[in-house]
């Protein structure tokens, strides 16, 4: 299967500033890709180049085989885009805003209106909510309206820029659930975000950006494996004598660090909780808690940059 989105040596400079440098990216059908990194690391610029809204300085981009710099209309017809903190016409209702989007996409009013109802209902904005002026919408509702606008276009690729920024935890969770649903329907989703821990749960693959370069790319597990070394972290709370010696003796444990009174953190090459519990009990110590920590992208990120700084 060929890549739906593909870039080769994509570079964008604004004067002396390089916003994106030599980006090689491939997105295949049915995956959710996370474009992650701090603000100003080139995520939005990359997206704008993919949509043909800004021209690359050098390199090429292909979206479904089309060059966005040459055929922006064709590309934009096939890609849905939810901009960073999307705005709508506040004095118009949600329904009217979608009707405008539909007309801009060349849909006739007769075809558009059942489609608008359908996407509004799906996003939980149906009936009288859709008739309210968007000015009265909450941030979460605006984001959902933005997603409705993408669904309305019936596209195969959706690009979401900071979709969970400014949402409360529950709304963010809800929104990510909707993204999962889209993926299940076979849509390719590209999410740009600096809230690593929020989006890591929905991404099949992620690319970490720093200063215009994609410095790491792969699955969340793969990245934590390669960056964090022993990918498994186990938190142990145990009372007894020489607990850290006992723990250090467990095979596959690479490192033990004390985290406070009776608390330890293990770095292990595999999930060795069973071995830990057996040994602690056998040595006569009390085992109070034992938890496996999921590797988090935040940690991968900060660890990676610590290393980079060390090397420099």
């Amino acid at each position: 299967m060929s890549a739906l989105i593909e870039t080769t040596d994509l570079t964008k400079r604004y004067g002396a500033v390089t916003a994106v440098q030599d980006l090689d990216l491939q997105l295949k059908a049915g995956e959710v890709f996370g474009l992650l990194g701090p603000n100003g690391s080139g995520k939005t610029t990359t997206i704008l180049m993919l949509l043909g809204l800004t021209e690359p300085t050098s390199g090429t981009a292909r979206v479904m085989g089309l060059d966005p710099a040459r055929k922006p209309l064709e590309v934009k017809r096939r890609v849905g885009y939810l901009p960073d903190s999307v705005g709508f016409y506040d004095e118009l209702s949600g329904r009217e805003n979608l009707a405008y989007v539909a007309r801009l996409n060349g849909l006739r009013a007769r075809e558009a209106s059942p489609a608008i109802e359908q996407v509004l209902n799906r996003m939980g904005l149906g009936n009288d909510v859709g008739d309210r002026a968007v000015g009265a919408y909450s941030r979460g509702m605006r984001q959902r309206l933005g997603l409705a606008a993408i669904l309305l276009k019936q596209v195969q690729i959706a690009i979401l820029d900071e979709p969970t920024l400014g949402l409360d935890p529950e709304a963010a969770h809800e929104f990510l659930e909707m993204i999962r649903d889209l993926r299940a329907e076979g849509m390719v989703v590209m999410i740009s975000s600096h809230l690593l821990h929020q989006v890591q749960a929905v991404c099949d693959r992620v690319g970490l950006f720093l200063k215009g370069k994609m410095v790491l790319e792969g699955t969340v597990e793969g990245l934590s494996e390669s960056v964090l070394g022993g990918a498994f972290r186990i938190h142990v709370e145990s009372r007894g004598q020489n607990v850290d010696a006992i723990l250090r003796d467990v095979p596959s444990v690479a490192k033990v660090s004390a985290m406070g009174l009776n608390k330890y953190r293990l770095e292990a090459r595999e999930d060795c909780r069973a071995a830990v519990s057996k040994r602690v009990i056998a040595a006569g110590a009390e085992l109070l808690s034992l938890t496996l920590e999921r590797p988090s992208l935040d940690e991968v990120y900060s660890r990676y940059f610590q290393e980079v700084r060390h090397d420099a």
Binding site: L51, L53, P72, L73, E74, K76, R77, V79, Y81, P83, D84, S85, V86, G87, F88, Y89, D90, V101, L104, N105, G106, G146, A149
Partner: peptide, 12 residues
């Protein structure tokens, strides 16, 4: 109103 990118990301 931050509607510019919404409108320009449509095929126009």
């Amino acid at each position: 109103r931050r509607t510019m990118s919404l409108v320009l990301s449509q095929p126009i």
